[in-house]
């Protein structure tokens, strides 16, 4: 208990110190303030090796062994700078992270060389969450930008924690590292949970809540028709194409005329997440079927609309719930 408290206090102090030392920014050019450097475990082994070479050389009065030892020591010194300057050449930029569902993975683009016109760093670079052992390896010799795989946590809008970037280039004698805050947020939608679609009548038309306007089944397949140039490719009935060499498109019933509100029922905190998950599913279904829908989260109401942008807006509102005041920029 005490230990945990101490740990938390220590972490807090550390965070405060880091926030002062390496302020959050979208684009981070590494420099003297942000880079930490210490000999790695191998660095210490190497130093031990130098010492034993020195002892051996002295005992055998062997000048060549001594020179070898001094050369190795000099390389240790030179590498302090080589590691630092290589690492300082990194100019990292994290593009906005696409939103995703809870516990899924998204990829964010991390640019290693945002300051162009310059040669970038060499060697492998490890990226991990601050205070976490697991890391992703990026080879800066191969790529200038990399798709960073992020494992999304539970629903919500989270600040992206500091990322630890480290490098052992060139000889692994030193570990250069930094903890960067890219000043971005993770927007995590609730993971959709299958359920019945429930659209409530538009409140301004009909005050009577709870009346069901429409309940279209999911993905109501209507039939096939001839393919017309310009049809969506994922509507093409590929089975038929393969069999008959005739292009047919699958036709789905359109519910564009239907319109209504998705509502978050009054629930206790225990079932809240589940209800939000169901709403997420319904939003997706409505959006897929081109239904004009609005979202009513009690405190926050989104007017009915269609389209991808609307869907994202609604899901973001779910992610932010119950915080309905902050306008979250993606």
């Amino acid at each position: 208990m005490l230990l945990a408290n101490l740990q938390r206090a220590w972490r807090k102090r550390m965070d405060d110190w880091l926030n002062r030392r390496i302020p959050a920014a979208h684009k981070q050019q590494l420099d003297l303030r942000s880079i930490f450097i210490l000999p790695s475990r191998f660095g210490w082994l190497y130093l031990l090796l130098c010492i034993s070479l020195f002892v051996l050389g002295t005992n055998y009065q062997n000048n060549l062994m001594l020179i070898l030892c001094f050369v190795m020591l000099a390389i240790l010194l030179i590498n302090l700078h080589a590691s630092y300057w290589n690492f300082a050449r990194l100019c990292l930029m994290l593009k906005a992270i696409p939103p995703g569902y809870a516990n899924s993975q998204v990829t964010a683009k991390l640019h290693l060389n945002a300051a162009e016109h310059q040669k970038s760093a060499s060697g492998e670079i490890r990226v991990s969450t601050f205070g976490d052992d697991e890391y992703q390896v990026i080879d800066a010799d191969c790529v200038q930008s990399v798709d960073l795989k992020l494992q999304l946590p539970e629903r919500g809008i989270h600040r992206l924690p500091r990322l630890t970037i480290e490098s052992f280039f060139p000889l692994g004698l030193y570990r250069c590292w930094t903890h960067l805050d890219f000043n971005t947020h993770l927007v995590v939608f609730p993971a959709p949970q299958r359920c019945e679609l429930k659209l409530y009548a538009l409140p301004d038309e009909n005050e009577q809540e709870g009346s069901l306007v429409a309940q279209p089944g999911t993905e109501d397949f209507e039939g096939l028709r001839r393919y017309v140039v310009g049809d969506n490719l994922n509507r093409v009935a590929w089975k038929h194409v393969a069999k008959q060499q005739q292009w047919l498109s699958k036709n789905f019933e359109s519910y564009a005329s239907v319109s209504g509100f998705l509502k978050l029922p009054m629930v206790d905190a225990v079932n809240l997440e589940q209800e939000l998950a169901k709403l997420a599913h319904q939003i997706n279904v409505c959006s897929q079927q081109n239904v004009s829908f609005g979202l009513d989260l009690g405190g926050q109401k989104l007017a009915p609309a269609t389209g991808e942008a609307h869907r994202i807006k609604c899901l973001t509102a779910l992610a932010a719930y119950p915080d309905n005041t902050s306008e979250v920029r993606l």
Partner: peptide, 25 residues
């Protein structure tokens, strides 16, 4: 790096005192 290390090593070699053998090898 090796070339750069040479002058430093030579300096150390020239200036650092030569110790007698620490023990019989």
């Amino acid at each position: 790096q090796l070339l750069q290390a040479m002058p430093i090593a030579v300096l150390l070699f020239l200036v650092l005192p030569k110790l007698p053998p620490l023990w019989q090898m």
